[in-house]
Structure formats: C-alpha cells, structure tokens
C-alpha cells in the first residue's frame, strides 16, 4: 500500500485528498455552490475558471493538513471523467504535472467508481452488490460481482434524478441545488397531487425523469391558471414520492432478480432522507445488507477518488502522461483510457 494524493474537479467542487495505507490523512473540498446558486445551475465556464484559481490552494491545504511532502507521495490520482470537460482538464493538468515532477505513477479514476467506493469508508463490500448511483449527472444501477467489476443494468435515458430535483425546485421557487429544499418541504407535505410514475424506457431498470419534470411544470401552471395557489410542501411530497419511489421499486426488482447480497447508495441524491428511509425499510429484516454513505461522501470529494486509486495502485493501473479527459466515460470502461 501507499500514500496517494487524489484530485477531483469534475463539476463544481475542487477537491484534494491524501491517504496512507487506506487511512484518510486529509480531505479538502472547495465548493462553488454559492457562485452557481444565482444561475440556478452549474455554469461550466465559470466552474472551470474557479477550478484554475483554487487548485493549488487546495493542494497546499491538503498537504499541510496531512503533514506530508510531495516527495512522500507514491502516486497521483485524478478524476478523468465523467464530468464537465473544461473542469476535468484542470485537475488532470495538476495531477499529470505532479506525476511528471516526482516521477510517480498517474492513476486515472472514474468519478462514479469513486462515489461507489466512498462506501468503503463505512463498510466492507459483499458481492454480488447493487450500487444505486443517483446524482445531478447520473442515475444508474450498477451490478458488481467483484471489486472493480461494474455492469450497468439500467440507467436514465434523459435527465438525471438530481437534475430533475433542481428543475422542479426552480418551478416551485425553491433554492438551488434543489435536493435538500425539496426533501425538507416534502417532510411537511402530503402526496395530494396526482403525478404518474415514469415508465422504464428500454430495459426494466432504465429511468426517464424528463417526463416527470414536465408533469410537475404542467400541473403547477394549470393550478396557477385556475387562479389557485400551489401548495409547495404538498407538491414537493407528491414529486418526491414518485421520483424516489420509482428507484426503490426498481431496486427491489433488481435485488430479487440478481440475488444481491448488498445494496449501496452513491452520489449526491443518496443524501436524500426519503431514499435512505425507504431503502432501509425495504431491506429491514432481509438477508441483503444496506450501506448508506456518510453525508460528507455524498457530495463530490477526492477521498473517494483516493479510495479507488488505492485499488488501481495495487492492480498497477497507471496512465501515461499523454492522458486526456473523457466527459462521457462509462464506468464499465474504467480500464480504457
């Protein structure tokens, strides 16, 4: 095992973490949320600019906190994709430069593998395992029969669930990002508004969230047209029941079909209290175990990138200095770079 420095810059957080034999020595995250708030979403050009400004500050802070020198690092890891292309470039240059200067291996890490492996900070994996990856950019079911063995058994064909939360929040006049405000409002509301569960577009575990978003928008407009007021709490609850309900329902089916021993939640939307509650209830008393990531792991960070990098270090998966980014990298192609 080794000392690893990992960099993550795929969206709106600039992050650097250092681990030593699996132990997290430092985990620095510079978030840009307050900047993107006023635009109601991440502006890629602005995010890329902020990464460029923040990157060395984060590196310094991570090294200072971990009390290690760059000379002590055994490998430099970086998120290569998926994510926003301009943002990915920045972290990639920093990691490549360090690998060059210190003549140490460069490890390319898949962002979603990071979110999945974040769970290793709280529990050990038992296979076969179903990873429910839900975030602002992704909604997919990943089946793992072993470490670093990813099979996508279902995914969204349009909007990601987190994206849908952000858009619905905007319609309801709630702040960005929309996940937490909707979750909070839903706790006070009743599911009185009729929203249809979205179909599975292709396979049984595929998702489509753009239709649900449109349903909410139309319903809100119809109510306003009638001169009535939308009850935000009730709309949030009605929406959340369907948005999360469909994930839980399909998870149940997948768990049965694949004889899954363990389910893990990953990605930003795994912070959602209703999803956590419903999955806990679904698996209560069953043989299938559930790991829920600590809240700090549900947002983007580099600790999770380091976690995957440790495995890749042991496997000897290293990249040449000509490594490029891949904004659409598929998790089952994590070896192709």
């Amino acid at each position: 095992m080794a000392k690893i420095l990992a960099i993550e810059s795929s969206c709106d957080e600039t992050a650097v973490a250092i681990t030593d034999n699996g132990k997290l020595l430092s985990n620095v995250v510079a978030t840009q949320i307050s900047v993107h708030e006023k635009f109601g979403g991440v502006m890629p050009e602005i995010a890329s600019r902020l990464h460029t400004e923040n990157i060395t500050v984060c590196l310094k802070e991570a090294l200072d906190k971990a009390k290690v020198n760059l000379e002590d690092i055994d490998a430099f890891a970086v998120t290569r994709g998926p994510g926003l292309i301009g943002c990915l470039h920045v972290g990639l240059q920093a990691a490549k430069t360090l690998a060059l200067l210190y003549k140490k291996p460069l490890i390319p890490v898949h962002h979603l593998a990071g979110h999945i492996y974040a769970n290793e900070y709280v529990g050990e994996f038992v296979f076969p395992l179903l990873a429910i990856v839900v975030s602002g950019g992704n909604t997919e079911f990943v089946l793992m029969k072993d470490h670093m063995d990813f099979e996508i058994i279902g995914e969204t064909k349009d909007d990601a669930v987190g994206e849908c939360y952000d858009k619905v929040a905007r319609v309801l006049g709630l702040p960005y990002p929309g996940g937490l405000p909707i979750d909070l409002a839903a706790k006070r509301g009743k599911p009185v508004y009729p929203l249809k569960e979205p179909d599975s577009p292709d396979g049984p575990y595929d998702f489509s969230y753009s239709g649900l978003k449109t349903q909410v928008i139309n319903l809100v407009n119809t109510i306003k047209q009638r001169g009535e007021k939308v009850n935000v709490d009730d709309m949030a609850k009605s929406f959340q029941d369907v948005a999360i309900g469909v994930i839980v329902k399909r998870a149940k089916k997948a768990i049965e079909q694949y004889g899954v021993s363990q389910v893990i939640l990953a990605g930003g939307v795994s912070a959602n209290s209703y999803l956590r509650e419903q999955m806990t209830a679904l698996l209560a008393g069953s043989k299938t175990k559930l790991i829920i990531p600590p809240l700090w792991c549900t947002t983007d960070n580099a600790a999770m990138i380091a976690k995957v990098a440790e495995r890749l270090y042991d496997l000897g998966v290293f990249a040449p200095l000509s490594l490029g980014v891949d904004p659409n990298w598929k998790i089952d192609h994590w070896k192709d770079f």
């Binding site: 890329s48 460029t52 990157i55 060395t56 301009g86 470039h89 920045v90 240059q93 430069t97 200067l101």
Partner: peptide, 14 residues
C-alpha cells in the same frame, strides 16, 4: 487554463 494550471502546480510544488 491548461498551461496556467500546469505552471501554477510547478511553481507551488517547487
């Protein structure tokens, strides 16, 4: 951004 990120990283590291 590419050369600036590289240059900053070198200046910081060394």
């Amino acid at each position: 951004r590419i050369s600036m990120s590289i240059a900053k990283t070198i200046a910081f590291a060394l």
